[in-house]
Design a binder for these strands. Structure first.
Ligand SMILES: [Zn+2]
Ligand SMILES: [Zn+2]
Ligand SMILES: [Zn+2]
Ligand SMILES: [Zn+2]
Lengths: 172, 172
DNA sequence: CGCTACTTGTCATGATATTACATTTCAGTT
DNA sequence: AACTGAAATGTAATATCATGACAAGTAGCG
């Protein structure tokens, strides 16, 4: 969602998505969405899972599993890798979190509640990650896949580059 | 059309990966291309590097760094991880090999000699990997990136699914 | 309650990747 | 041919990412 870059919010030292936004609302909304959808679908958003989602939403950037694990430990949860990986598995399976393959890291979904195939823009300078909608199965690639007889089930689309904030710093 | 797998060994007009093709020519041609381009550009296609490229071309699928390392050891080269990773780094930097992020594995480039941004189709059943041309910076995603002010430098486009060969087996 | 499925905590291990440093090879120069 | 600096290689050690196995706790249910 890149409809408009709205500078109304905090000038912020925030490595957020790329545009400023009301991050408290962004976090609270996503958590609420996750809770209601879990309730609706009979999924169990347990304390660990909820905490991991909350951490990823608050950071608003991609975190490695071990970084998450450190934060979990600080919050009093288990500190062994499977604790983090299992929570992440649940969150990824149910679309609340995406894995960024390029970084071997995880990021909270920016468009929860809707089925979608994510595309990411990853700043190589500040490591900010923005999620854009994508429809890779349409377009030239999808046509090539159909021509080859390949049935696409899942796609990874990740662009590495420089975010507007870092570009401004660098050029200035 | 051309979606059917041709059982005879036809010269590959499209080195697309899932269809049959003259693999000996495919390997020899790619090696020759690599050699001539290295000669032209003053790059050193040393024995280890050439061997890694040859292994990837012959396998014609994605191999993990440690699988490559095993093959290198069998061929009498060094057997420590940096040996493989350094050869792969050279080959990736110079466009002879791509990394498949989704698999943490490497595959020989199917369109060497031309600057391009690869897109992959990965069969989850047989692990075949086909490379298609891609232009992700065009289309909706590129538009989103421009709208966000993000400068794309490199893209990862990988589709996971079922290749025509496995689909035929499964459906039949 | 007792049963079951699921979740969590933990230890151990496996898989992927990099750092550091000594040695060798190579291209260009003397 | 011998010298030299840059590049490449060999090797040990370590760092980072991820999973397997099993015991213990917990929610839902007859
Ligand atoms: Zn936010
Ligand atoms: Zn940035
Ligand atoms: Zn081939
Ligand atoms: Zn297949």
């Amino acid at each position: 969602m890149t409809s408009s870059v709205n500078p109304k919010d905090a000038p912020s030292a925030a490595p957020l998505g790329f545009q400023n936004h009301d991050h408290r609302a962004c976090v609270a909304g996503a958590l609420a969405t996750a809770e209601s959808r879990c309730a609706a679908d009979g999924l169990r958003l347990t304390p660990v899972r909820r905490k991991v989602l909350e951490l990823l939403l608050q950071e608003h950037r991609a975190l490695g599993a071990y970084a998450i694990l450190d934060l979990l430990r600080e919050a009093g949860f288990g500190s062994q890798p499977p604790v983090a990986y299992r929570a992440l598995e649940f969150l990824v399976e149910n679309g609340f979190v995406h894995k960024v393959e390029r970084l071997n890291a995880f990021v909270a979904c920016a468009h929860p509640g809707r089925m979608h195939s994510p595309a990411f823009m990853i700043c190589r300078l500040c490591e900010a990650v923005a999620e854009a909608p994508s429809a890779p199965a349409r377009g030239a690639f999808g046509a090539a896949a159909r021509a080859a007889g390949f049935q696409i089930e899942r796609t990874v689309v990740e662009a590495e580059g420089v975010c507007p904030s870092c570009a401004a710093k660098g050029d200035a």
